[in-house]
Design a protein around this nucleic acid. Structure first.
Lengths: 168, 168
DNA sequence: TATTGTTATACTCTATAACTATA
DNA sequence: TATAGTTATAGAGTATAACAATA
């Protein structure tokens, strides 16, 4: 196995300068961490007949209260047309409803229905429990350190990413 | 804004026990970190007419050498039918090719074509550079700490996730 | 019989652009 | 004119199941 590292491979990570190697390694473990848990969650969501974007909308509404379409899009990084599609599917299942706003008749406010509220109230604690279990290999202090470092990293990325998104 | 936190919201994160709150916070910042960078990268990939799964396949082949379809699937957590689809699209663009394996005629080994090799050799360093820039808000030591904590977390998740995937 | 990979099907997500209605 | 949201279109990913060929 070791012998193969330098044969037949077009890109050889070992040949990068240390700083770059370190950064790549960090990204690889971050992505793996996210993907394995997220895929697992997506699997659990299917038992509730939900997709990750649909769960994202329900969760956001449950935590922040009724929102406009465009607010949902901004919060979840979706384009307007995509929000329409996801909300359509949730509405068809009876989990959310569009309520006309008196002040400005161009917009709606999306509400959870009673059924949608029940669903998220049932699913979210289970989801949270899995997150708690998943992170339980870390001590409380490690979790705090990790959270702080990720916060720092995420802030940096958002500052770079936003101008790109605007001009695109 | 502060006043809204407890009104009209179905789920109130503040009311969770501390351990769960900590865990949820960690997951939120991890997901945000991953998503903002990954979305940004997906945007850059479009300039090369590639999607993230397609890039994943090219990158894997470039780093590990020619692979079987099922190996690609395992490495990238894709089902067999999905690998077929992604590889089909890459083959149509002339970036990879299926090479018949002498020993076992059921399987192929997927190779990068010269064009595919050139593409990934051009794109990957740019990608790596963006990762380096993105992580440059952290000191070298912070990166190491972060990497180690994520490794620990990822290992735990993989052990839980795999049995689930097998039985499904 | 088990494994490798494909085909068929159906659905969701996503981006983009053109469009309607309201402001 | 600008904004909120929809519609239309097209492509890509995904899951699932049924299938072919080979071992």
């Amino acid at each position: 196995m070791k012998a193969r590292l330098t044969t037949g491979t077009l890109l050889d990570r070992e040949s990068y300068p240390d700083g770059r190697k370190e950064a790549l390694k960090l990204w690889v473990v971050l992505a793996r961490c996210f993907n394995s848990f997220a895929q697992n969650e997506a699997h659990h969501l299917k038992a509730f007949d939900l997709t990750p974007p649909q769960f994202g909308v329900l969760e956001t509404l449950a935590h922040l209260g009724p929102m406009k379409m465009c607010e949902i899009g901004m919060k979840l990084l979706m384009s307007g047309a995509n929000v329409t599609g996801v909300v359509d599917r949730l509405e068809k299942k009876g989990l959310v409803r569009r309520a006309l706003e008196a002040e400005d008749r161009r917009m709606f406010r999306i509400h959870l229905t009673e059924e949608g509220g029940k669903l998220i109230a049932k699913f979210f604690p289970i989801h949270a429990g899995r997150i708690e279990a998943f992170t339980s290999v870390l001590t409380s202090k490690e979790k705090r350190v990790l959270t702080d470092l990720l916060k720092k990293l995420g802030r940096a990325q958002r500052h770079e990413a936003e101008p790109e998104r605007v001009q695109a």
